[in-house]
Amino acid sequence: MTSTTTRSRTGTGAGAGAATRGPGLGRKLTRLTVFAVIAAVPPLLFDSYWVFLAAQVVAFAIATLGLDILYGRTGQLSLAHASFMGVGAYTTYTVSSYGYGPAVQLAAVVVVAVVAALVVAVPTLRLSGLRLALVTLAFGELLAWVIRNTTDLTGGTQGASVDPIVIGLLDSSEPVDAYLIALVPAVIATVLAAHLGRTQLGRRMLAVRDTELAAESVGVAVARTKITAFLLSAVYAGVAGWLYAAITGFIAPPDFDLFASVYLFVAVVIGGAGSVLGAWLGAAYIVLVPELFTLAGQPNLYPIVGGALLAIVALVVPDGIVGLGRGIGRRVRRARDGQEETA
């Protein structure tokens, strides 16, 4: 954007191209190793409260990955993403109260999330931008209203205790177990989201985000692509809500209100829209940073500092933390190439 190279260099496969090339075996192994090492840190080094938070980061990462599909890749603004987490969490609560285990819970969450997403997405087909955001906002409010008025079924404003998930020896009321349980769907969600970038489905989304005219000119179904993105993001959010309910053991309407949706949005923007790594960084940011402020005895500062940081990121590094890293990488490569040429 800022760099217009007039002299054409023969491409060395910088940055952006990774979206269409599958990573080689070597790179896959490197990534796997790095991931395994980072993933092993919380349970091995941290006390159980921080492992509990780490488990939440993992659950929220699924939500931000989903919002990234919708906003980062498809360019659709939703203020109901936390509501879809709520759909997942309350479906989990309802299904588990009948004594059903994690497999049935997960299946129900996926089905209910898809149905709820269709209800929102199909009528709003032709909407985008602010109007879509307003409709999603209305959906969030509707959901909150339903919960408030169905105290028998959902616990209402008082919230509800959710039974832990038990899988074999793992019990999600134990932070380390919850962390391990959450890690499996999160890894799958991450691998699928990364793979999406190498599919025509993923490219349709980018085309809808950047230029609907060009998308249509090659035959892309714009409305269908938006709906698909909305459905995928809702399923991601629903699964995140399922894990959130199991990890925290208690859910209440404020967990899934407008502010929660805004924070998810902040996470995607700060981490770096359109990037899988950015979604993870964003999830870590919204779970851990408020905690650090609380630890420092200044919990009220978080919204202020968080808001300022969002403004700075939006203005200075529009591609978020990940974009910042890439920009530096590009600059380093360019400096190096320049040196080679003069040498």
């Binding site: 952006a16 979206a19 980018l206 090659v218 359109g274």
Partner: peptide
């Protein structure tokens, strides 16, 4: 009308729709 922040390859591949 291009996907400005994507690679040349991605921009061409979208045409395989």
């Amino acid at each position: 009308r291009l996907l400005e922040r994507e690679s040349v390859l991605t921009n061409v591949l979208i045409g395989t729709e």
